[in-house]
Structures are given as structure tokens and as C-alpha cells.
Nucleic acid binder design. Sequence first.
DNA 1: CTGTTAGCGCATTCAA
DNA 2: TTGAATGCGCTAACAG
Lengths: 361, 361
Amino acid sequence: VSASATIRDVAQHAGCSIATVSRVMNASGPVSIEMRDRVLAAIAHTGFRPSEIGRQLALRQSRNIGVVVPSLTNPVFATCLAGVQQAARQDGHNTIIAQSDYNPDRERAAITSLLAERPAALILTLCNPSDPQTRAFVASLPVPAVLMFNEPYAGSPPTVSVHNHEAGHRLARSLLDHGHQRIAFVSGSMAQSDRASARYQGFCAALSAAGLVPQPVYEVNFMEADDAADLSGLLTSQRPSGIVASNDLLALGVIAGLRRLGLQVPADVSVAGFDGIRIGRLIEPGLATIEWHAHALGVSAAAMALELAHSGTTTRVLRLDHQFRPGGTLAAAPVEAICDVEPRISSTSNPINEPLSGVSS
Amino acid sequence: VSASATIRDVAQHAGCSIATVSRVMNASGPVSIEMRDRVLAAIAHTGFRPSEIGRQLALRQSRNIGVVVPSLTNPVFATCLAGVQQAARQDGHNTIIAQSDYNPDRERAAITSLLAERPAALILTLCNPSDPQTRAFVASLPVPAVLMFNEPYAGSPPTVSVHNHEAGHRLARSLLDHGHQRIAFVSGSMAQSDRASARYQGFCAALSAAGLVPQPVYEVNFMEADDAADLSGLLTSQRPSGIVASNDLLALGVIAGLRRLGLQVPADVSVAGFDGIRIGRLIEPGLATIEWHAHALGVSAAAMALELAHSGTTTRVLRLDHQFRPGGTLAAAPVEAICDVEPRISSTSNPINEPLSGVSS
DNA sequence: CTGTTAGCGCATTCAA
DNA sequence: TTGAATGCGCTAACAG
């Protein structure tokens, strides 16, 4: 029982050939009832568990799906991964993971390492799919691949994502509607994330439409929830009354960074983020954010990957819905902030369309 | 290039036998310089990546390590996993994951599924290792296994964990030192976690030593950070002035639950947890907690597992250090709470040994 | 130093 | 309905 039995042991015990055993295991051919029972008994008796490895070699394909995410410690990726794993399991697949640590070189190494396992499919959240080198590498992948969370591009693998651009627009609108006119966009290293880029583009579009001139992204050295974000360079003469962070984890770091500088949220500065991580709802004030169903994103990615592996084709681009989640970190702009700003072009009135009814829902 | 080349293709291109190719790949035998170069060139030319599957079958062992955790959405497990994955990668191993969802049946199914991959080793955070059925199952595992985060027991696999009991004691002391006398312990389903049990035991020991009678665990239906914890049954006539949650994620849920009931933290009730998840430092008030290095826990678990897989032996029990992390959620007990309590046995004075100097460090 | 050969555990023709 | 034989890609003796 300890040294795992092989299909031959089972065949011996059942008094049949290994072909028959294989047939009852996979229902891949006709087997008489009595023989089936004999084999089943032999399997139970020997404690036989078919080796995936043998199976994989024979079929030249595994039942594993490989997943690469930038990091596991950002809850939004962990949640995606949970969804992937659950969906994969329900289809009889195991999940092999790798982290790119937001590093394109590591990313390539990680994918290469996964490829050695001959996975049935790959699910990738790429650092920077706009990089030509990355695109070429992804295009040459010898197994079906699906992009998760990334922005699809011409020639990209099938992609399940969210409306990053719209989300950026939507969040900017919320701040504008609360009377904010000086709004900063804070991000980690921008070159590393097409998600952050797309959100920023949407953000800019909303500001421009409101007659404001968007400021460049304020980049902070903040990959994970290690520390408060260093905002000393942002809060100079013209302090923003609102800050949009490129994701929720960073938003928490921004709030901590503001606090360190003696500023209150939302009294002095409003803050909002993207992702809708669960923890954002538990804290006080609740984190205003654009929320999407990260778990469903993972489930969908796995579904697409498996469909691709099986039938060779699937939806090309799937975008999951998002919604604005109000939170106490986003409040009306302070009066002085509204006053001391010189309108850039023609500041239309910005009625507060979505007053917050207290805390997060 | 697309349809992955095999070792035979390489041998052909290099004009040698597959054995020679294997030798240069694994440095497993003498090869002349010129031949080595020829093979290397052929590998580069064909884009050959050796199939782990073929290798695994030949060696009857894979370079994968399997990991089972209760959940991926609790940051403490995600962080452990990140550590495991990093350490495994550095040793040339891939990481296959599975979640038990805090369900012993799922747990067994998950392990069984991983075993089919013939992993070099298994790293397990078990739901409930005190369950005889679980113990028997774990004891019969055909591959090396390591327990992570669980309490070791007689006959258990090698274990890397923390001092759960001491941590519980330490945290209770902190509350006592802040003048709290009515302290509740809140946990998710208790039967599911030996970690929570051990922490509670330590908690009880500290209370007893202080002459207090510990109350039974207050169990809430709270597996993940989905919602505020329902504390309606806890905050009745004799409201506790302090609450210890069995982990940080739950502590956040408890704080949210208190807020929903109109109670302030720490003004009305102090709260503390275990794990030291990073996010606890970013929020305000900072979460008081017992902090351990979850990432290092994962790294150590992987190191032990790999050592076990390689040499067949390793440290039996490794306990990582912890430390108390002060936080604004833990403050001095309200005066009325101290007064209206009737001393159970002989309430010794509880000087505030560790006044909090503001927010979290 | 290099090539030949024999499996590893399984799925799968092809015969019977 | 069943069995025998073949090969998946690779490693590891064993010869040469």
C-alpha cells in the first residue's frame, strides 16, 4: 500500500490485462459487469491510484494548468488564484503556480519552468504585455494560453479581464462629483502594469471631459503592502484634495502615507482605489473603490483555458462587470480646496451626484 | 519549434546518442568539450526544453512539491505560499497548490489529487490534525510530508510552526496589562483549527494565572473576510472590554462587527489578533497582534520538505519566533469596565506594562 | 568518452 | 468483450 501500486498490480489481482484496467478507469471501452467489479475490487484492495505521470506521458499532455501572477500577497491575485484553482479542480485539473514578482525576466523564467510540465493550458497575468519581447514570447507559446486581468491586444491570446479604462473613468467621475478638482493618480512602477495604465487613461479622459488637465502619474516605490507609501513629493505646494490609487492595496498604503504626513482621510484628502478587495469593506473608513469579482475572474479564466485546451477555441475577450463601491475614504472636497484652485479651462459645475450615505454599504 | 522537440531530435541534430544529450543536460557523466558544445548548439537550435514528464517517469519522482492550505484568500496563507513557491523555485521545483476550504473531506481529496502527481514532497496546513482519521491518513502518506503552521503531535510529520500557545498567553497578558478583566476569545469554527485551539489554551492559562476565569470560545460563522462578524450573542449583559480574535482576518471582521453594533474600537472595546498580516499595519487604528514571519514560515517549510525529499531526514519540529505588535486597537480598559466587574478570585493589580506610544510602529 | 538498451506507468491501437 | 504489443520522453545501467 505504501509503495504505490501500479496498473500491473491491479491487473494481476483482478486476473486480467492492464488494458482492461485502463478501460474501467477511463470508461474508454466495453467491459463486462463482472470484470468491471473484479477490477474495482482489485483497485480498492491494492489502494491503487493511477499515476498522472504515466498518463501524461502516454497522452503527451498533463491535467495541470499553470498560472503566473505577479504576486501572491496582493489579495486580488490570491483571490483570482483561488477561483482558478477551484474551477480547475472541478474539471479534474491541478494547478501549478508561479510568481513573476513584477519582473519580466522572472516572468519568462516562470513560464518556461511551467512549460516543462507540459500543462494543458496556461493562465497568465503579465507584467507588461505591451513589451514587444513579451508579446513575441507569448505568441510562441507551445500550449494554449489565456490572459487574465491584462488588456487584450491585437494578436493576444484569449483574455478575460475587466474594463480598466471605464473603471478609471468611473472613479474619476466619482471624485469630480464630490467636488474634487485637484486629483492625483498614484501608481507603482507604471511600466510594469498595463492595468494601471488603462485605468489612468480612463481617469485622464474623465478629467479632460470635465475641463481639467490631468497631472502625470505619481509613481511610488510600493509593490506590496509592506509600508506606507512615500507621498512627500506629491503633497507640496498644490496639494491634491483627492487621490486615486491604481489598486486597493496601494490605496491602503497611500492612506497610511497620508496619515504619516499628518493628513486625515477623508477630511484632508479623499482616496479611492481599484479591485474591491474584501478587506477594504472591513476597515473604517471603508475604502471607496471600483469593485470586480476577482474570484469569478479566476473561474472564468480557468473555464476559458480549459475550453481552449479541449476544443481549441474559446471566447476571444471576456470583460467582467465592475461597480463603484462607495466608502468613507471618499468624501466631498474641502471648501478651501475647491476655492483656491484656478479653473484650467472652463470648470463646469460638478454636482455631487452620489452623496455617501455613511460608511461603505 | 512549436511542437516541442524531444531529446531524440537534439541527438539527431548533434549527431550523437540521446544518452549523450542527457549527460550534458544533467552533467551526469563525462562528455568531451567539443561534443558538449555540439549538443548545446543543437539544443539551442531546436529550442529543446526537456520534458519534466519524461524525466519524472524515468525517475519515478517529480520535481514538484504539493501544498495544501485551508484557503488562499487569507493573506497569512497566501504569504506562506509565496514563501514556499520562492524557496521551491530556487531549488528547481514547481509548486502545485490545493485548498481544503477548511473542510477535512476536501482536504483528503486535495491531498489525494496531489499524490497522483507523485510530488517530491507535500507541505500541509491541516484543518484538524487531532482528528484520528486525518492522522491515520497523514501517517500513511507515500511521500515525504511536512506540516506547516499546525501543532506537532506524537508521530506527526516534521513540522514548522509557531508558538501558538505562547502567543495566546502573550496576547492575553497584553490585554491584562492594559487593565482588561473581561476578555473574550472569538474564533471561527473551533473544531477546524488546532492553531486556534492552542492559542486559546495559552490565552486561558494567562487569564487563570491572573485569577480570572476564562470564558468559553465565542464561535462565529466567519471563514473569510467576507463580512462583519456577528457578535450579537457576545455583547449582552456583561460586555467584554477586550476581544482576542483567533487570527487577524477575523479580528478585522470583529472590529467591523463591533462597529455595526455601534461600538468603537478601542474606546469601547479593544481588539487584537494573531498572524501579523501586513495590512494590519496600514489601517488605522493599527491592529494589535502577535506577529510572525509568514513568508519565512513558507520558506522554512519548503526547505524542510526538500531536505526530507533529498536526504530522507530533517528537523522534526521548528518553531519560528513571534513578537507582540502594539496597535491602536488595543488600549487601556475603560474605567467603568474595570469597576463594574466583580473580581473572580483575587484580582491582582494589573499595571500597564506596555503603554502604547501612539499608533502601530 | 560514447552508444545501446531497458524500462518507468499508462493509453491505445490491433487482433483474437 | 478481452489481451498483447507498442510507444510516449527520459534516465541509467551496461557495453564498447
